[in-house]
């Protein structure tokens, strides 16, 4: 009798163990992503925005600053072609980033965006961005990369400056592995 009771407790606890493992690996990361999207935590911006014809608020201007950072030993030259612009909320604008691969190797890069202040992240919509895809560049090649965005009309009045920062990662190894796997 006691042995049966012990097995019941053991199975129940083992079930909890498996459930907690699944929670850690399959539930916590998606919850974290949703949480970051809602709060703008880490300045994560959303995916491609489908432009809706919104009115433009001509009465105010927001300064948008552009930054470019190379992650650790990434050898590319990577910079915004204008360091800042003034936009009206609701207005769609296009800016360009410039990248050169100075090495003798063909490489693939991935730019990861971040917006500061966090509370502006959900109001910063990108209708077109080079960060949506990875960027392959042949040895010695240069490119201009386009970014189109709208600062939402609903952005808080206290936000006068938005800083958009891109960090460029070298993903050549991972991208090569992937293309080999696809073939």
């Amino acid at each position: 009798m006691a042995a049966k009771e012990t097995m019941r407790v053991t199975w129940r606890l083992l079930f909890t163990v498996v459930a907690m493992f699944i929670f850690a690996v399959f539930i916590m990361p998606p919850i974290y992503d949703v949480f970051c999207e809602i709060t703008g935590l880490n300045g994560k911006t959303g995916d491609q925005y489908q432009a809706i014809s919104a009115e433009v608020d001509k009465s105010r201007k927001v300064k948008v600053q552009f930054l470019a950072t190379n992650n650790e030993s990434m050898p590319w030259q990577f910079k915004p072609m204008q360091s800042e612009i003034y936009v009206h909320p609701g207005e769609e604008v296009e800016v360009k980033y410039f990248a050169t691969n100075p090495t003798a190797e063909n490489m693939v890069a991935q730019a990861v965006p971040s917006v500061i202040p966090f509370k502006a992240a959900e109001y910063f919509h990108k209708t077109e961005c080079f960060c949506f895809n990875n960027q392959p560049l042949k040895a010695g090649e240069s490119t201009e990369m386009a970014l189109r965005f709208i600062v939402d009309i609903g952005v808080a009045k206290s936000v006068n400056t938005i800083t958009l920062s891109y960090t460029l990662f070298d993903i050549t190894a991972a991208a090569t592995q992937q293309s080999i796997a696809q073939n």
């Binding site: 606890l13 909890t16 163990v17 498996v18 459930a19 907690m20 493992f21 929670f23 850690a24 690996v25 916590m28 990361p29």
Partner: peptide, 13 residues
């Protein structure tokens, strides 16, 4: 019981 599986999860990731 509650947290050791989370440790196992994080090292598995």
């Amino acid at each position: 019981i509650a947290v050791m599986p989370v440790l196992a999860g994080v090292v598995t990731m």
